[in-house]
Design a protein around this nucleic acid. Structure first.
Lengths: 335, 335
DNA sequence: CTGAAAGCGCTAACAA
DNA sequence: TTGTTAGCGCTTTCAG
């Protein structure tokens, strides 16, 4: 690879002039600039980012750390959103999946520091709280899908309550009055929030909460669809069965579909189903296509980069911004 | 961030000595080493990768370029496999998705060169041929899921023929003699190869090829599951219907499931179904769980990094290695 | 075993 | 408008 020196020699100018051309400095004669540019082309010269960084302190690098995000299919859009936004700003993204191993995590953060990333985005697979102290003080961090115990780091999370409410109200809007909810039994923001949203929606419509309509899948969560199948079957066998079911996520909706079909009922005529997450590969392909609430992953990834670069509210009212992103309704054919 | 100079001063030694400690050079007195190490700890010092690169020429960086891989759910494991393998070798991975835009691609490659990546992995969404000239000569490249027109770049692709054969023989092994195949109508390695494998398997079992059992889904490929549904329905309405169906991919198997159920038949008792890709979120969740052929993405990602770093056959018989990876059978409950 | 000094490729004061 | 020079933080001869 050619160096700036070779370019300078070949163009018959000084290194500084080449540097000027490289950085669009106006104080270069047009003729000189053209000549230099030509030589740069000929030599296929590209300035070294490392050397440039040494002087400017701008590495143009962003670290994207995940706990186990990338093991599952939900979050492509998060990565894509972040990557694309970084790209638009001429930054490169380091991807690193820690597998939730604290040791790996610590080393990963160090490795990113070694490469002087301008900041780190830390995204978790599930919406949860994390410990602030695992992150260094001297480097910007933006949290995605999680938040710091002491709220001392800017964070972006989905609005679970709003999403739960939207899902339920979508069903209520269609005239359903007996709305089942198949939730997961975990003390985490997602199940807790969606549950709260479910209750709010009921309250908004003046419908009393009926605990018999709410079911919880217990851990472990493998075979989620199958557990949901059983759950929904029992729901439909009630004396006063629900005519609509809100499933905690799309995978579970798959089980609900099977249960409804098993009961010789039709979707959405006899039972309406709504999911959560908008996993396209599932939701758009099953029959009828699943109406669901979208986890706005792309937007979250995008916002994370913007916040990291100081473009958007990484600080709000003098404190690290805690952003809640709305989860929109995706209408397909199951409601 | 502390510099090596500050460490040296504080430890009362020269920069050179700190550098020795950093690089595990044996010619340091134990006492000196300990002292330096302690100061490094105190200052939370980390050597700058950029500065280090300037001297050593080792950037420890690998570029991972995708066309539109990351838009779909198939390929997490590819990224994870590559990332994890890079991590084990203390390397960092740049992720960059080009959206198949040649202009973006060119700029992306340049950007990676600016950061002096040690090599580039280029992975495509679909198994296909690519043009060699889009890549620079002076930087190692490994192709994944694609191959260069002139075979001048090392490449890793799945063995489509073997996979198609394995899928079909799995069905044949169970005693099925009328095996349907729902393929996609595209002149690409995947549909072509799996078709060839299907025919080979038939031949191996001495069963004549019956064109009526093979159907092709035409582009566009949105609503793949739905098109497959229609296809399989017509297959099952034949006078001499198939008792087993090989679907080009798992999403299509989803449509096949619906068609079988619609025909009041059972899986696998009346009709066996086998898919391809092993998209866990689908295959493991539907009922019955789908037996399928796995695209060994993790292994391909892993091998790509190893080849890039010269650990595995990037050169075979003096030519760039063209590797074909076997696609294993994943037995679940649909056959 | 340890240190002084050169230099990697670039940018930025400062001079010319 | 252009060139000279110092220096970013590190590794590496080469002396001591």
């Amino acid at each position: 690879m050619a160096t700036i020196k070779e370019v300078a020699q070949r163009a018959g100018v000084s290194i500084r002039t080449v540097s000027r051309v490289l950085n669009d400095n106006p104080y270069v004669a047009d003729a000189t600039r053209e000549c230099v540019l030509r030589v740069i082309q000929e030599l296929d010269f590209r300035p070294s980012a490392a050397a440039r960084y040494m002087r400017t302190g701008q590495s143009q690098l962003i670290g994207f750390l995940t706990d186990e995000l990338a093991q599952n299919a939900f979050s492509y859009d998060l990565i894509i959103g972040a990557q694309q936004t970084a790209w638009e700003r001429q930054k490169l993204l380091f991807l690193l999946n820690t597998g939730n191993d604290p040791h790996v995590e610590r080393r990963a953060i160090n490795m990113m520091r070694d490469h002087q990333v301008e900041g780190i985005i830390y995204a978790t697979m599930y919406h949860r709280e994390i410990i602030r102290s695992q992150f260094p003080e001297d480097i910007p961090v933006v949290l995605v899908n999680c938040f710091a115990d002491d709220r001392s780091l800017p964070s972006i999370v989905p609005d679970e309550i709003g999403g739960g409410r939207l899902a339920t109200e979508t069903l209520l809007n269609q005239g359903h009055r007996r709305v089942g909810f198949v939730n997961v039994a975990a003390q985490e923001p997602a199940p807790l929030g969606r549950m709260a949203g479910y209750r709010q929606a009921l309250a908004n419509y003046g419908i009393p909460f009926d605990a018999a309509l709410v079911r919880f899948i217990e851990e472990p969560f493998e075979g989620l669809a199958t557990s949901t199948y059983d759950c929904v079957l029992s729901l439909l066998e009630m004396d006063d069965p629900p005519t609509a079911i809100f499933c905690f996520n799309d995978m579970m909706a798959l089980g609900a579909y099977d249960a409804v079909r098993k009961s010789n009922l039709r979707i959405p005529e006899d039972v309406a189903i709504i999911g959560y997450d908008n996993v396209e590969i599932l939701a758009a392909q099953i029959h009828p296509p699943l109406t669901t609430i979208e986890l706005p992953n792309f937007e979250m990834g995008r916002l994370a980069v913007r916040m990291l670069l100081g473009e958007a509210g990484s600080i709000q009212d003098g404190r690290p911004g805690q952003h809640m992103i709305e989860c929109p309704l995706i209408v397909r054919g199951s409601v």
